[in-house]
């Protein structure tokens, strides 16, 4: 299977006053074509910084990040902060296409077909993000990411803020879209059970390092690292 992303021996640090705080320590990983790769860890483990390094927002002090496809699109925990509150959903979905100079008619068609794919009704396209529920907003942000034809998504805690029944719907939607389109998703979550249900492979992160890596079933059934065992035991 081809890789669409390779992270090689990446280290990164933040400045904390005069001192440098190492956040990522010699991280190597690859994201393959057509997979959901889970990245799990507790707060402060560096998982969100890693996504920023991949996107180029944080410069690694060492190592390199190799992209074999267009830059990934992000889906965040709280889509409210990434969706323009003043614009209607239809306009928001059209915007990336407008920037790519797609003709108006084609834009409209693609918006409608994408809306359908993610389970948004036509009537919702006329609403503003504030008039949608959390689950519907997350559908909009997934649609925005996919409409540009990106083959790689980074989803950072995309279902953590949702009620459990809505969470389930969004998880099912992401799995279904992945299986239909064969895109790759780097799925960041603190929730091991969500990771178990969604991902093909899993990386466990702790203190800026990859603690363990493996196929989902294998890793959950036979965790090798003490930390993974501890996490599995603590997860309700």
């Amino acid at each position: 299977m081809k890789n669409i992303l390779e992270v090689k021996h990446v280290s990164a640090s933040y400045k904390d006053g005069k001192e440098k705080q190492a956040v990522l320590k010699d991280i190597s990983l690859e994201v393959r074509e057509n997979e959901i790769l889970g990245l799990v860890g507790e707060s402060g483990c560096g998982k969100s910084t890693l996504s920023k390094v991949i996107l180029g927002f944080v410069k690694p002090s060492q190592g390199e990040v190799l992209h074999y496809t267009k830059m990934p699109q992000m889906v965040f925990q709280d889509p409210f902060s990434s969706l323009n509150p003043k614009k209607k959903v239809g306009w928001i979905l059209e915007e990336p296409l407008r920037m790519q100079k797609v003709p108006s008619r084609e834009r409209k068609e693609r918006v409608i077909s994408m809306a359908e794919k993610v389970g948004l009704t036509r009537e919702m396209l006329d609403r503003r993000p504030g008039e949608l529920s959390g689950g519907q907003r997350q559908r909009v942000s997934i649609a925005t990411a996919l409409i540009q034809g990106s083959r790689f998504l980074i989803a950072d805690e995309p279902v953590s803020a949702l009620d459990v029944t809505i969470q389930r719907q969004i998880m099912e939607l992401m799995v279904q879209l992945q299986e239909e389109t064969g895109i790759s998703i780097l799925f960041i979550s603190h929730d091991l059970n969500v990771i178990y249900q969604m991902c093909d492979r899993v990386l466990v992160m702790k203190d800026g390092k990859i603690e363990e890596e493996g196929e989902t079933e294998e890793l959950f059934e036979n965790p090798r690292s003490e930390y993974t065992k501890e996490l599995l035991k603590a997860a309700p």
Partner: peptide, 18 residues
């Protein structure tokens, strides 16, 4: 029942492939 069915667990994957 709906609520319980929605809880993520480690019994069943949502992935057809797996």
């Amino acid at each position: 029942k709906k609520l319980l069915a929605a809880i993520p667990d480690r019994r069943r994957s949502l992935r057809k492939r797996r």
